[in-house]
Design a protein around this nucleic acid. Structure first.
Lengths: 166, 166
DNA sequence: CGGAATTATTTGCGTACGCAACTATGTTTA
DNA sequence: TAAACATAGTTGCGTACGCAAATAATTCCG
């Protein structure tokens, strides 16, 4: 039984919306559990390692890392603490601004992400990328890029306005 | 600086992937905070009310509700407890199987979702649906439906294999 | 220069969740 | 029918997170 006095989404719209939400949710859970099972890394932790591995000198400021990961500052503090405890990352006072901290990948952290990346990348490919032709993938990206840009303007979520371009 | 010894995603693939992940993450956060700000309902709680409002007699078994919400059984127990505390839902022993519980929308719960739905629906429309032509929306759904079906086969995430069809 | 405002990060506290163990009821089987 | 098994839901416990307040360093003015 449905409540009729509100303007619900049309069936097509509802289907698009629920497909999107379910897909994301199940996919993320799967990518996470694959990494946890094989490497003891949550996808959240993995994400930190990826951003560091892409950074100049394998090193990034805490706040930038928080923005890249779409997590709060305090959330990042704790997430990084776990990685430090595992020896994958080290934290150094930023020489040019002593309020700030640089998170830096250790050799062990680098080795760990080199070990884990193929699993994660394979997951992203198998469950997502491989389902699209090259052209469809481009279409798909265009579909989302506009809405994403709009959302980033509307929210004050702390995210940088441009996504990393590589 | 990038690690070269692993087979990363191609730039186009990486862009598609990150656009998707960021879009979902920011959109969900926005929809949640809109609901919390105006109605004191998290999107997780809202989701429960929606499923109940669509159910026969506004009533569903706990486990089914958990599957629909992609949440663990214990997660649903607690989520429902919060809704019961707010008087939006009531819980009754299932007459045909006394192990089971039926969650049922109260009048207050029904009123609350009728009040909150327009805000949520407007958000889904403004941030997502309205960005697509009717045809693109259909394309988009087709893009995701296949991967979603595959994922649901591979995982044992407790989700029902068919999504609700309305 | 020196105090006020700003910025970077951490800490205290509360919330939402998953897993594994538990309770209670129902089903199967010998 | 009684014991073994299965199923529905809850509870204990640990984890990851966000918000707001606290701390520390820097910048901005007058």
């Amino acid at each position: 039984m449905v409540v009729d006095s509100v303007h619900w989404l049309e069936p097509d719209e509802l289907k698009a919306w629920r497909t999107f939400v379910r897909f994301d949710s199940i996919l993320m859970a799967k990518l996470d559990s694959d990494l946890v099972a094989k490497f003891g890394l949550s996808i959240a932790e993995y994400e930190v390692l990826v951003h560091l591995s892409e950074a100049e000198n394998h090193e990034l400021r805490m706040s930038l890392l928080a923005d890249l990961c779409l997590v709060s500052r305090s959330g990042l503090t704790r997430r990084l603490e776990r990685l430090v405890d595992q020896g994958l990352v080290e934290k150094n006072i930023c020489p040019s601004d002593r309020r700030g901290m640089n998170a830096k990948l250790t050799d062990i952290g680098l080795a760990r992400i080199i070990e884990a990346a193929p699993t994660h990348v394979a997951g992203v490919r198998n469950y997502f990328i491989s389902k699209f032709s090259k052209e469809d993938l481009h279409t798909f990206t265009r579909f989302l890029a506009g809405p994403l840009a709009d959302l980033q303007h509307k929210t004050d979520c702390g995210a940088p306005c441009d996504q990393p371009d590589d």
